[in-house]
Structures are given as structure tokens and as C-alpha cells.
Amino acid sequence: MKTTHLSEDEIQRYALAEHSRSAQSILHMEQCPQCRTAGLDYQLLFEDLKQQAAPAFDFDLADQVLSQLPAPKTQPVFSLYLIFSVLAFVALAAGLTAYLSAEISSLLNWLIIITFGMLAAGLLADQFTSHKKKMHTLNQANLQH
């Protein structure tokens, strides 16, 4: 065992439970009331330091900063995939109209086209909204993990 008292540095390292403390100093601490008291003082000090009130900004920092950032990149509303789908649909509808106009009376022809067109537009809009909603939910969930 170390017979002289530990240095202040050794006592601090003991109080911090640092790996660098020597076996001799640990043994000394166990048997020397004076050094042990000094070590306990430091441990108490470290505990008190953790309890000290932390300063905080008295304004919403995130809001202030975000208002100064450039606008976020937004995904284009109509992706290439969607544009090609719409074009294909229009071409198909035009072809069907041309075929039907030769075969059926014009009133019935337009009735079929309008009904079909409205149904298709409704389905397409519903799919798009649902896709956007799912992506948003996914992003939120990822950010929270």
C-alpha cells in the first residue's frame, strides 16, 4: 500500500472512477480516512455539478432558424410516371372514341366517354392522395425513431 497520502490528481481520478487509477491508490483510499474524505468531497461536488440549473434560450430557436432557411425541396406534383400514365390514358380514350364514333350513336358515345373519364379521374386522384398520405406517415415514423 502507498504510505504517503495520494496527490490531488489521484484523488480526483479515484472520485471519477477513471481507469487510469492505480491499484495502489485504490488500496490506499480504502485504508486512509483522510484521502477517502477528500475523495468523497469530490464525488459530492460532481453530483452537485450535475444538479446545477442549465441555461436555456428564452425563444424558439428552431422556429427562428427555420424561417431563415431556403425553401425545402419539394417533390414535383406530377412525376414522370404519372404523366406517362395520363398520356397513355388520353391516347387510349381517343382511340376508343374514334372507334366508337364509327359504331354507335354520338349521344351514347359521349355518355360512355364522360362516365369512364370521370371514374378514371376519381380513381387516379384517390390513389395519388393515398400515396402522399402514406409517404408522410412513413417520414414522420422514421424521424421519431
Binding site: L61, A62, V65, L66, L69, P72, N139, L143
Partner: peptide, 12 residues
């Protein structure tokens, strides 16, 4: 990628 919500998380 320009995600402002992620930047808010970083600030918080």
C-alpha cells in the same frame, strides 16, 4: 435532401 423537419430534430 432538404428535409426541414429533420433539421428541427437536430436543433431540438
Amino acid at each position: 435532401n432538404g428535409d426541414h423537419h429533420a433539421f428541427t430534430v437536430l436543433i431540438r
